[in-house]
Design a protein around this nucleic acid. Structure first.
Length: 550
RNA sequence: GCCCCCGUAGCUCAGUAGGAUAGAGCAACGGUUUCCUAAACCGUGGGUCACACGUUCAAGUCGUGUCGGGGGCGCCA
């Protein structure tokens, strides 16, 4: 709010002086406190177009800004920066504002109600969710919450690949284990089959309910039966894992259903209409190289089956047809080759390719006691999402996944995540929250209430440490907008760690409740209450709990 | 060969939409508790922002190239 006010003030003076200016006008908090509370480079950026030297323009602006009483001072510095120092009452107003807004503080209409489709996790329903899915879940869900809070209208979707080759292999894997259970000796378990323990568990479950009955129906029917059974079971497993992680979806889009609706044929006919397909070597090809791909791709294999590209194109057509303004795909790092083909199709069909944003989450290495944990999907040796949550807890898992920007590789240190000390940022932050709660509890016991708080007392807050905290609190809405705009929830993690640090320092330096100074105590309670609010808000947006005591 | 990501303190990483003297945590060393939770705080040291060139009043940030690390490139999904 303060930042916006400064921007508005600057623009008004430009208009008043009849000078030109470029949008956006940039105001930021300088990292050097000697450069004031806020600084702007407008004079440097707009000097040329007004045929002035940067310093001259800056001085004229400063002169007019200084006529306002809100600023303690506006100075020209360096090559033409404007340095703003806020008056104390302005700080105190911010604090009041935070209290008035309550849990809504930080919310904005920045997103202008744009409809956003957020597709994430979308793991194959052929096994338990792994740590990569866990990262995607933490990332996608947090981004959803942040976008929701900043005025977008996001929609969470999980695409279930419950059709196609992989699923057939799953059915065959179950079949083999099922036979094994009924006494047949399986000499060789094929390498492409699913080897995980859960496959055997599913076969056992099926055996318990059906016995040997399934041998009496046709092979085709039996496989179909096993497929559907396994898909349902694994889907439920995944939903449960996600729920334990406090991640939910608005829609689970089934590939099978899309296929049943004939949407694959539709997609193919659209591509044919756009004259983008041709036949060669018994296959149907898509001339994707005309639309930015490195080479053409097969749509229908020579055996008559569609490649995975077709349902994917079809699925994305539905994304466009459903009228989203922004379409975000959160993918693993191994998909960028795939995205070239997909984008080619979108161009060929004349949809706006700029609406589609692909976020690549980079890979994860799990470290245990300093050793990298080796994972092999084929051998079924993976660290599952459930394992991880069991090991380190939901809060730590979510924090560590959000702490890194999506494009960075992530090293997950199991030891660190479970440590209960200052080395572990999750505890550091939660402890700050718990400490505040504890102080507020004490205040309640001593019958100090913030109800009917006289804001005139806020002038008691005059320490630099206090102003610094308020300054940090007032950037919260900006941080959220940036996190939403850049699709980078980790900015929030960085922010909150800093806020927690500020509080811990403040706590050890000053006493909040001092019996001798009731007015000061009240003012400080008012301050830490605002910190508590922002901590609670940002923890919630990251999907991390805020414990009242630890 | 082609494509994607990364390269900032001993380690793990931030660094806002290009701004002024590059930050935090951990590790190391030294200190702090009759007091609202020591899961905390204070102090000290530590850097050619991989390298080169370019764009600009201004580059860790943008562009091109080089080097180094990781991942991906089937009529598999």
């Amino acid at each position: 709010m303060i930042k916006q006010k400064i921007i508005t003030d600057i623009i008004n003076i430009f208009k008043q002086l009849d000078y030109r200016y470029k949008e956006p006008v940039i105001v930021e908090i300088p990292n050097n406190v000697e450069h004031g509370d806020y600084a702007s480079n407008v004079a440097m950026l707009n000097a040329k177009s007004n045929k002035l030297k940067p310093i001259e323009l800056a001085e004229q602006l400063a002169e007019n800004l200084n006529k306002k009483r809100d600023y303690k001072s506006v100075e020209v510095a360096g090559p033409g920066f404007l340095n703003f120092r806020l008056s104390n009452p302005l700080y105190h107003q911010v604090l009041q504002y935070i209290h008035e807004q309550g849990t809504n503080y930080g919310a904005s209409d920045y997103g202008q109600k744009k409809k956003v489709l957020l597709e994430f996790v979308s793991a194959n329903p052929t096994g338990p969710l792994n740590v990569v899915s866990a990262r995607a879940a933490a990332y996608g869900d947090s981004l959803y919450r942040i976008m929701n809070f900043t005025g977008f209208e996001p929609f969470r979707e999980f695409y279930v690949n419950d059709a196609g080759n992989q699923v057939d292999i799953l059915a065959e894997s179950i079949e083999l284990r099922y036979r094994e259970l009924h006494g047949e000796r399986i000499i060789e378990f094929p390498p492409e089959a699913y080897h995980g323990e859960y496959v055997r568990d599913l076969a056992i479950k099926l055996s318990v309910s059906e016995g040997a009955k399934l041998f009496h129906i046709s092979d085709k029917d039996r496989l179909e039966r096993m497929k559907n059974f396994a898909l349902d079971e694994i889907h439920l497993m995944q939903v449960e894992s996600l729920r334990r992680f406090d991640v939910d979806f608005d829609n689970w889009m089934s590939e099978k259903k899309l296929r049943q609706e004939g949407i694959l044929e539709e997609a193919l006919s659209y591509l044919a209409e756009a004259k983008c397909t041709y036949e060669s070597e018994d296959a149907v090809w898509f001339c994707s190289s005309k639309y930015g791909d490195v080479k053409d791709r097969v749509l229908i294999k020579s055996d008559g089956n569609p490649t995975y590209l077709v349902p994917d194109i079809a699925y994305h057509i539905t994304k466009y047809q459903r009228g989203f303004d922004i379409i975000i795909d959160v993918l693993g790092p191994d998909h960028h080759a795939h995205v070239l083909k997909l984008k080619a199709a979108i161009r060929a069909l004349n949809y706006d390719v700029n609406k589609l944003e692909v976020i690549y989450l980079q890979q994860i290495n799990i470290f245990d006691q300093g050793e990298k944990v080796k994972m092999s999907k084929r051998a079924g040796k993976i660290v599952t999402m459930d394992d991880l949550i069991k090991e380190v807890g939901r809060d730590a898992a979510r924090y560590f996944f959000l702490d890194r920007k999506p494009s960075a590789h992530l090293n997950f240190d199991l030891e660190l995540a479970t440590k209960q000390s200052s080395e572990n940022p999750v505890y550091y932050i939660q402890y700050a929250y718990a400490r505040i709660c504890s102080i507020l509890k004490k205040a309640k016991k001593e019958k100090i209430s913030l109800r009917n708080f006289d804001t005139g007392l806020l002038k008691k807050l005059n320490k630099n440490d206090e102003f610094r905290i308020i300054k940090h609190l007032m950037t919260y809405p900006d941080i959220l907008i940036q996190a939403a705009e850049h699709r980078e929830p980790h900015r929030l993690a960085t922010y909150i760690l800093e806020l927690a640090g500020m509080f811990h320092k403040y706590y050890s330096k000053y006493k909040v409740i001092e019996d001798k100074y009731p007015e000061l105590s009240k003012s400080r309670l008012y301050l830490i209450h605002a910190i508590k609010q922002v901590l609670a808000s940002s923890l919630h947006l990251m999907g991390i709990s805020a414990p009242e005591k630890m």
